[in-house]
């Protein structure tokens, strides 16, 4: 039962992270997920000092607020001619280091455990149950991330048109009357919410892996957006399951194993993807090279066809054999009708 809860939690967290992660990636904002996971800690710490309770809803509000502040700060710095990457690096480092200083200062009377917050241990998730009005709803992490997942799914559904427009064609989005800025802020808010719920369960660093790896893998597999969304969900699920099974088997950090599995899965896609994978493309290049050599022979033979002395052409035996097999030349090395047809096709795609 605990195992089932753990697996369910892992899958739900992965899905909840992957969905906003996909849109962040498509909009070129992936590193923001890294910044958010670090800067949100400041929101949690500050709210903790004000409210004094780890599990109050105020924590979420504080964390989401600090996420939005991060995005706004990064935007402001960019307007001051700081490049986007330096701005992100600066803002999250400032907020994160301040959070750690605060935690260390008041370490004795804090229930905030730095290791747990950042490195996370999902193994304990099934023991922290969410009980409302006496009804046991399941692990808190699962319920919270389920809410986040539901929220992003609904938002994606409702605002699909706006998202697609502002992501891929901001100019015409403005013309149609969609504001890219509003959609961006909405996405950042949703991402902050997801980051907070997720890193409570699996730790900050794994959240970054979950938000980037599955979308990046799906991106390599298809050009179609809807297919990409489904593939992202599928790959997020499979990486989570593989990682958790491996972690159980080897008895190592579950969060770490899930991140590792996501990475291994990406490398597998990168190398093995049909058509666009590294290996498929290498084969394709080799095939193309061979085709070009064959065509060069065919052209050479054709040019000697005119002076009717194709038997005197110096040519590789293997190529001649293959040309004959394809029916492009006859036994006197004269081009056949289909040979000429192939030559006429050169320059047009098959």
């Amino acid at each position: 039962m605990i195992l089932v809860d753990l697996f369910l939690t892992g899958v739900v967290v992965s899905l909840a992270c992957a969905l906003p992660g996909l849109w962040l990636m498509l909009r070129g904002m992936s590193m923001l997920s890294d910044a958010l996971t670090h800067s949100v800690l400041l929101g949690i710490v500050v709210t903790y000092f004000i409210v004094g309770d780890v599990s109050s809803p105020w924590m979420f509000i504080g964390a989401v607020l600090s996420g939005i502040i991060t995005a706004v700060f990064v935007d402001r710095l960019q307007q001051r001619n700081v490049s986007a990457d330096a701005a992100i690096g600066l803002v999250f480092a400032g907020m994160f280091s301040f959070a750690i200083i605060l935690i260390t200062q008041f370490a004795d009377d804090t229930h905030l455990d730095l290791d747990a917050v950042l490195l996370g241990e999902i193994v304990f998730a099934p023991f922290d149950r969410m009980v409302i009005a006496g009804v046991n709803l399941g692990p808190r992490a699962m319920v919270m991330n389920g809410i986040a997942l539901l929220l992003s799914t609904v938002c994606m559904w409702v605002f699909w048109k706006e998202l697609v427009y502002t992501t891929f064609d901001a100019t015409s989005a403005v013309l149609v009357g969609f504001s890219p800025a509003v959609i961006s802020i909405g996405l950042v808010t949703l991402s902050s919410f997801t980051v907070v719920t997720a890193f409570d369960a699996v730790g900050a660093i794994l959240v970054v892996a979950l938000m980037t790896a599955a979308p990046a893998s799906a991106f390599l597999l298809t050009f179609r957006l809807k297919t990409m969304v489904w593939l992202t969900m599928l790959l997020a699920m499979s990486a989570a399951l593989i990682g958790m099974v491996a972690a159980m088997w080897l008895d190592v950090s579950v969060s770490g194993a899930m991140a590792t599995a996501a990475g291994v899965q990406f490398v597998a896609v990168w190398l093995l993807a049909p058509k666009r994978g590294l290996i498929a493309r290498a084969f394709e290049r080799r095939g193309l090279r061979h085709e070009v050599v064959l065509l060069a022979h065919l052209m050479h033979l054709a040019s000697h066809h005119i002076d009717a002395e194709p038997h005197r052409v110096h040519a590789s035996e293997q190529c001649l054999r293959e040309l004959t097999q394809r029916g492009w030349i006859d036994e006197r090395r004269m081009l056949t009708a289909s040979g000429y047809a192939r030559l006429n096709d050169v320059g047009t795609r098959k």
């Binding site: 660093i205 892996a209 980037t212 770490g256 991140a259 996501a262 990475g263 990406f266």
Partner: peptide
């Protein structure tokens, strides 16, 4: 983003 998180996970 992916590499830093995956390496950290490893």
């Amino acid at each position: 983003g992916m590499m830093l998180a995956v390496f950290f996970g490893v």
